[in-house]
Every structure is written in C-alpha cells, then in structure tokens.
C-alpha cells in the first residue's frame, strides 16, 4: 500500500485533466489552424492560408481587430490600476482595522455578480435615456441627450468597472502584507509620508499590481462579452472576430489561427510580467 501514498500520485489526476482537456485541445487548435475548408469539409493540408488571410485581408479587418484589442486592453489595464491603487491603499491604511474586511467585501461586492449582467447594466446607465443623461439634462449641462453606449468609451468603462475591483483585491492583499515596520523605519530615518510611500510602499506593492495587471490584460484581451454588449458595431475586437468565424461561418481553421495569434500576444504579455509573478508558499 505504500505506493498508493497521496504524495506519490496526488498530482496525477489534475495533470491528466489538464493534459486531456487543455493541452490536447490547444494542439488540436494549432493543427486546425493549418487546415483548410474544402467543400465545407475541414481537411488538414498544412496550409498557411489562415495566417496569410489575417495579414493580408484587403479590408484590414483582422489586423485592425488585433490593434483595437491591444489598444483597448492596454488602456483598460492602465486606467484600472490608476483607479484601483488609491482604493486599495485607502482600504489597507485608512479604514480602521476592524472595518477593513467589511469595507473590502462591500467594495468588491459587484465583482461576484454575473459578468454578463454587469456589462449590460452599464447600458442602463449610459444609454440616451439612461441615468447619466437624465442627470446631465436635469442639471442643465446638456440640452439633448448624448448616447454614450456602443462606443470604445463604453467598452473601456465596462472593463475598468470590473477590473478595478479585481486589482483592488490583488493590490490590497499585497499592501496588507507589507510590514508596518518598513514604513516606521523609513520615517525613523527621516522620510516624510510621501517619501516613505514612494521609496518603500510603492516598490513593495509592485507584485500585487503586476499580478492584477497581468490578469486584467489576459482576461480583457480575450473577452468577448463586454465589447459585444457595450462596444457597438463601429469597431471589432479580436475575440469578436473569432466568434464571428465560428458562429456565422463555422470557419474553425481561420478562428483557430486568430486564436493562436491572440495566444501569442498573451504570451508576450506574460514575458513582460513574468519577472514580477512569483509563486510563493507561506
């Protein structure tokens, strides 16, 4: 029975699951991206046509979609960090200890609700007869309502709403781990509040920011829902292009090729963040 010790085989089921339902599908998709549709049947021909059509489509749809995706994602990541950092800082250092847990749960409460619901609820706020327009009309700032939905602005806003909460969580978790004595020592050595923040707290909270920013980047660049609901028809992001290929045209080879390109971008992002993302045991 010694051989059936958990320490020996405990990792096997999880690895098997990952291999069968994650690695194998990725390989299948890679193979698919080199296939072609001939008479509606998908055949492996080791063609590069799918990648070629990404680059050379005359209307530039796919390259444009990739570029849009990168722009929106980078913008989202930066704004989310800027919004979340002060929030996490206030939660960690200004809210009294006894209230912190409650305040944190409250702050990220909408994080736990449905992603689809959260996205479309912004339509209620942004649309021409939505809350913001009503308010601006009432306040006399506007004469006629302006539609704020169906735009890149709306997409980024929807993203920031969600990812600011995610980043608040990761940054807060990082900030509360920074020992009080670091700041005390900095003050003791002559640093004022801003200097202690700039030289000590900020650099020590980089891992929390990096983890959150990386997750934001990966989740945002691969997200289909928010741009589809809030972005409107004016511009298309890469995930929308992928879904379009699967949904309307059942063009799995092209969809696979586009997904591979998406993965490549994410891998590049991972390389950028990798140094800061360390897994440590307590």
């Amino acid at each position: 029975m010694k051989g059936w010790n958990l320490k020996n085989w405990g990792h096997a089921p999880a690895l098997a699951w990952t291999a069968v339902f994650f690695v194998a599908p990725l390989i299948a998709m890679l193979v698919m991206s080199f296939s072609a549709r001939i008479d509606g049947k998908i055949t492996l021909t080791w063609t590069l046509d799918n990648y070629r059509s990404f680059l050379t489509r005359a209307d530039g749809t796919f390259v444009g979609a990739l570029w849009n995706s990168i722009e929106v994602t980078v913008l989202t990541t930066i704004i989310s960090v800027l919004v979340a950092y002060p929030l996490a800082y206030i939660l960690a250092y200004r809210v009294p200890k006894n209230w912190q847990r409650f305040a944190l749960v409250l702050t990220v409460l909408p994080f736990w609700t449905s992603y689809v619901v959260r996205s479309y609820s912004w339509l209620l706020v942004l649309s021409e007869n939505g809350i913001i327009n009503q308010f601006l009309l009432w306040a006399g700032i506007l004469d006629t309502p302006i539609g704020m939905g169906n735009s890149r602005f709306a997409t980024v806003l929807g993203f920031v709403h969600f990812f600011a909460m995610l980043l608040t969580l990761t940054i807060y978790a990082n900030l509360v781990q920074i020992k009080d004595s670091y700041r005390k020592a900095a003050n003791d050595l002559g640093a004022n509040g801003w200097q202690a923040f700039w030289y000590i707290t900020l650099p020590l909270s980089v891992p929390g920011v990096a983890v959150g920013a990386f997750l934001t980047f990966v989740l945002a660049i691969g997200d289909y829902i928010t741009p589809q609901i809030l972005g409107g028809a004016k511009e298309m992001l890469l995930p929308q292009a992928v879904m379009l290929q699967i949904g309307r045209q059942a063009d799995f080879p092209l969809a696979s090729a586009l997904s591979m390109i998406l993965m490549l971008v994410i891998t590049a992002a991972f390389m950028v963040f990798a140094k800061r993302l360390k897994m440590e045991r307590v």
Partner: peptide, 26 residues
C-alpha cells in the same frame, strides 16, 4: 508540473472553449 497546472490561467476562456469544442467535435 506546476507550470502545466498553472498554464490555463494564461489562456483566454475563449481559446480554451474553442479548443474543447474542436476536440469534442472531432
């Protein structure tokens, strides 16, 4: 092993879903 187990976190749900769909179809 750790890298393999953590890998899905770096891939978009869309890609995982599509891969599974292709595999299940096949």
């Amino acid at each position: 092993y750790q890298f393999l187990l953590m890998a899905p976190i770096t891939v978009s749900y869309l890609i995982i879903g599509m891969g599974l769909q292709i595999t299940f179809n096949y």
